[in-house]
Nucleic acid binder design. Structure first.
Lengths: 328, 328
DNA sequence: CTGAAAGCGCTTACAG
DNA sequence: CTGAAAGCGCTTACAG
């Protein structure tokens, strides 16, 4: 007993294929009595339209692509959860592509396009000129996730990282701290550059010296570097672009005998689940990853619906600071 | 300038559509000179076959589904990375479905089937009878990921959790410890049941009393419970089914003044990235999530290739213990 | 409101 | 080794 075809439904309901199709796609065009009869049979026979045939005939696939960088981050899972909940609501299904080239190597991209998705969610850490060129030639809407689009042409959902770094720095200054260090990644991710900019602005406005350290994301490289820094003397406060790095720094300082938060206050920038497992727990700027994914998918839906009426927007999601034991 | 069709390639190369199609799908059937000419044009015009048309015509989609539980776990990201690398190698593309019903609610499942994937990777934590029934009626191969299949009919890739819990317990006993506690989840996940079984066996064999605690996975519920346990006195060793719970337990004990590993040794069961961020770092049984995903996809590929020749297998991946500062 | 028919872009026996 | 033709399972103008 194979999967029922639209033809079987039509036969069983005593209507044409066209009518069955309409019941599914334009129910308002079908008389209520026929519609009900057809729907009943569809349910009875457990009919599910073949996605390929549907996509081929309609040139829409009710499918979107998520393109994520290969590097597996813990936050990806939560982001996907947010996207998926939204996708379910709007009746879309997800195709997953990973991409290890910041330039969005055309190979990956053409695979994405050949899969005839109706829209694309792009999660790249960086947006290069090549990437933008690829996107310009893409026949379906693209939305950047956790990233503010560098141009007005494309939609995006993210956080105002410049502002949140500025705000938290200013807050720590207003609490009487002067010696505030900022630890970023060696690799210049757009997102981290923005945080750094915000930090600098706050420090400059207060007439304080910026103190910026760049580090590898890799713990085995971090640790010797952090050890060295700490041995030269610790700052009052350290802001760290990643929670994992923040916790690593904090642990090393504590092992050297410093007290957190009395001698050193530590603040992270993601509020991942790591944050509540450190001891003391880590104060964080909370970046609501789930919500970003959720909104991105919702925005993409709008853009897919009516490509002309709806303009791509650069949406921002609110952040908040979660104060925990690593700060006074 | 739209995406080139197979028709355009045929025209430009001076052959029929059939030949272009053969070049792509059965290159050995095409004379070398024609094949080269066609391939050149395909490349020049950046032709990518439409996935829907291909899937419809061939009844194969070179697409597999990953079905994951809705609850977003950090490990999902790494598992997906493993699957994706393997999928790329074999030319498959991924569709992602989330599923919040342990019984594999038929709604999700029929969506998966309607998407006409060639195979399915199932990552459910539990396998109920209903789930098995659904899978039996599925027209394509299914492989369980990070789970040993309860029946021989389906493929699976996982770890021998019973044995690894047994081994680590036995090891700790042989080091002279007698008071070994096991912390599991309240909810009886198959995987955790197996660990518990292994722990029990090792304790029984040594004539020691098992001491099993069940806890919610939720930290805010864990903490008061762990606090209470610790106030009544700590064991020499605690084995915990999840890293996050292990670290939480360890932190509470240390805050009560106990020394790790001198007063208390702690062992986790996943070796997630949490493990190296605790202080001291957590000794773990390493479950190679990436490799599990990778092997699962490779096995699925075999099953999809020749459904009759290749039998589904229950594959096991090696684990190892990573000794760190939380044990002596 | 409904049906007959064309067509979406491919693949694959079937001939030759 | 290659081409003409049927067909995959749908959708959607076009008539009526």
């Amino acid at each position: 007993m194979n999967q029922a075809k639209i033809y079987d439904i039509a036969g069983a309901a005593g209507v044409s294929l066209a009518t069955v199709s309409r019941v599914l796609n334009h129910p308002e065009k079908v008389k209520e009595s026929t519609r009900k009869r057809v729907l009943k049979i569809i349910k009875e026979m457990g009919y599910k339209p073949n996605a390929n045939a549907r996509g081929l005939a309609s040139r829409r696939s009710t499918t979107v692509a998520i393109v994520i960088p290969q590097i597996s981050r813990a936050s990806v899972a939560e982001m996907i959860a947010g996207i998926d909940d939204s996708a379910k609501k709007f009746g879309y299904t997800i195709r997953l592509f990973t991409n290890n080239d910041p330039n969005l190597a055309s190979e990956v991209w053409s695979e994405v396009i050949a899969s005839s998705v109706d829209g694309i969610l792009l999660m790249n850490d960086e947006i290069t000129k090549e990437t933008i060129e690829h996107i310009r030639n893409t026949p379906v809407p693209v939305v950047f996730v956790n990233q503010i689009s560098p141009t007005e042409e494309f939609g995006s959902v993210g956080i105002d990282y410049e502002k949140c770094a500025y705000d938290i720095t200013k807050e720590m200054i207003s609490r009487g701290n002067k010696d505030i260090m900022f630890i970023s990644t060696e690799h210049k991710y757009t997102v981290n550059e923005l945080k750094e900019k915000g930090y600098r602005r706050a420090m400059e406005e207060a007439g304080l010296d910026a103190n910026i350290v760049r580090s590898s994301g890799d713990l085995s490289i971090n640790e010797p570097q952090f050890t060295e820094i700490i041995e030269e003397g610790i700052p009052e406060v350290v802001l760290v672009v990643r929670d994992s790095m923040a916790i690593s720094f904090m642990n090393i300082a504590m092992n050297k005998g410093y007290k957190v938060p009395d001698d050193l206050q530590v603040i992270g920038f993601q509020n991942t689940r790591y944050a509540v497992l450190s001891n003391p727990k880590l104060t964080c700027v909370e970046t609501p990853i789930y919500e970003i994914g959720n909104k991105a998918m919702a925005h993409l839906t709008e853009l897919m619906k009516n490509e002309d009426e709806k303009q791509p927007a650069n949406l921002q999601v609110d952040y908040q600071v979660i104060w925990r034991g690593s700060t006074k």
